[in-house]
Design a protein around this nucleic acid. Structure first.
Lengths: 190, 190, 190, 190
DNA sequence: CATGAATGAGAGTTCATTCAT
DNA sequence: GATGAATGAACTCTCATTCAT
């Protein structure tokens, strides 16, 4: 693939991202993407064979992006507490964002492909990072926690619960704050 | 509507339930239901005008059913701890069930109608019951808890997190058990 | 057919009349009539086999009604001029009536069955009456006219032109008055 | 739209024209046109979204065609009498044509859309031209007429009457000739 | 007589996918 | 590479008509 066509591919991915953010996964048709990109029907097929192919590519890029962002954040700060708080605030922002979020599309895709390890891997990776932060916090004497791994998993499930609730029953900023406070208390607490 | 046709309506709802459990919400067409019920195209329209109408009716029946089951359980037991444990075990069973669960369909429907209060009402009702149980447990000196309401909400979000994870990244029995243990410890604990 | 069922038949015809006046001929379905009459689907078929059957029966009753009304009017008056003017005013009223007119339905039906002599017979009968009035008017020295038959036909075509225009491009009361004046001038005139 | 597809569009319009001439407006379905054109179901939708869209396009082309034909006729002749006679003969030919006429479809469409100004505009335009011819004829000392506008309107309504009668009760060549003679006498006469 | 559930044909419409240019 | 016309399958929804009760 030439440089030029690589640029077009990127353009399609960026544009399709908005479409998925807007309509979820299942409702997006190749036609939707063709129209959003303002390219020809056949043209899209030169780059991607299906909406799934496009969506997976977008997810892949996302994962890479968020990983590096996270790692950078960790490098910048020294206090585990601070980093965790930052992470949770980041989650809150995403949770409450109305547009431009792939979460609904990702869930819909997850329903279809629940046996593919992709999302599980993302979940595990995030858990691993939180666990690391918890351990670090314990080491820094800010957190107290008997089982860092279980605690991390608990935090992850809670975040998942907030995320899905934000997209189905809506969730207020206060509700999220309460849960964040809950997590931090627990870590600082007992 | 006569008795006979009422029976047929029930038959359609039961059959459609399996279809929704199998395919989620968005992918189910009237044709799917027609074929599953083995009735004529027009015949289905005598009873329901759209998949949404059918799905809502199923959800309604479900809610009523679970409500009364819950109330009965509360009447049967005296220990709040016991009832809560029962409730959590019930959730676990549903979580791990492979088939015959409407959770994916309900999420998909929730994505589409996130501003309708139906699912939120269900959430709030469940929260209210858990809060009641927590208070009861505190009164029975089995639980210790500063803010019963916040604790109940936390439990609900955690359950939501497990539920969605069960349908997207899969969740093991042990993971669920860990979370249940986590909740109970917390309540008994501090 | 018993007396009771004869009454029901009449009821159906009267109700269907409104439906045809409202929707024209082609768009009326058996379902429409069933619903307007608030009877059962099968019930209607006991009396009529199709919308055409119903419509024809309505038209037949209409023709009989208008014939006798006309004849009565002729008997009541002595001046041909007066009767003709009355007739033209009657046409005007029907022309401008918004609802409760079968004219659109009749045209639509006529398009489908242009070879059936029914409507032609109505036209000819009306022409005959007008011709009679013109002759009478000439005899009464109020009208002057070389060829009463041709004049009558001309009047009829003009009325038809106003009627169809009223249902397609709309026609104002003044426009109709102008045409009526035109006819009368011509008859009185030359 | 490319040249090629423009040609196809024209082909569809021409083919659909025959369908409308054959079946009127209301009974024509997209399927009818698809079959008449021998194209695919989806193919038709690339060009037109509904039978109404197609019909309006046909009417538009017709209007443009007849306008220019008329203007050319006026340019070619010098005598108003001659032109009017030509116009009336043209109307006669159309009136008596069995096939290939859109008049029934146009009436049916008019019934549905009686408040849209399209047909009224056509009527008014034609009236204007006739009025112009009458004035010209008066100026050329061939016609005598007190009120050219009212006379023109009268002629139009008469033509309308003949047109609708031709499609409902049938009309003979002699009947049309009689009416044409009637009009011309009147203009030459008084 | 009367009911209304049931059937199935048929129309509208949208898209994934292909392919000639 | 890129276009966009074309196809055909799939789905929604509505009725005429029948028939068991």
């Amino acid at each position: 693939m030439t440089q030029k066509s690589e640029a077009k591919k990127q353009y399609i991915l960026e544009t399709a991202r908005k479409v998925f953010a807007d309509k979820g996964y299942k409702d997006v048709t190749m036609k939707d993407i063709v129209e959003a990109c303002d390219i020809s029907r056949g043209g899209l097929y030169l780059y991607f064979g299906s909406t799934e192919e496009i969506f997976l590519e977008i997810l892949k890029e996302d994962t890479e992006g968020s990983d590096s962002a996270f790692e950078e954040a960790i490098r910048g700060k020294t206090s585990a507490e601070e980093i965790l708080q930052l992470f949770l605030e980041e989650q809150k922002k995403e949770l409450l964002a109305e547009d431009d979020t792939l979460s609904v599309a990702t869930y819909e895709y997850g329903f279809l492909k629940k046996d593919e390890s992709f999302l599980r891997a993302k979940f595990n990776e995030a858990t691993r990072v939180i666990e690391y932060l918890i351990r670090l916090g314990c080491h820094q004497k800010k957190f107290h926690c008997r089982n860092a791994h279980k605690m991390a998993v608990n935090v992850m499930f809670l975040i998942e619960g907030l995320k899905i609730s934000a997209r189905t029953i809506r969730v207020t900023g206060e509700e999220v704050d309460d849960e964040i406070a809950f997590i931090l208390e627990e870590l600082r607490g007992s």
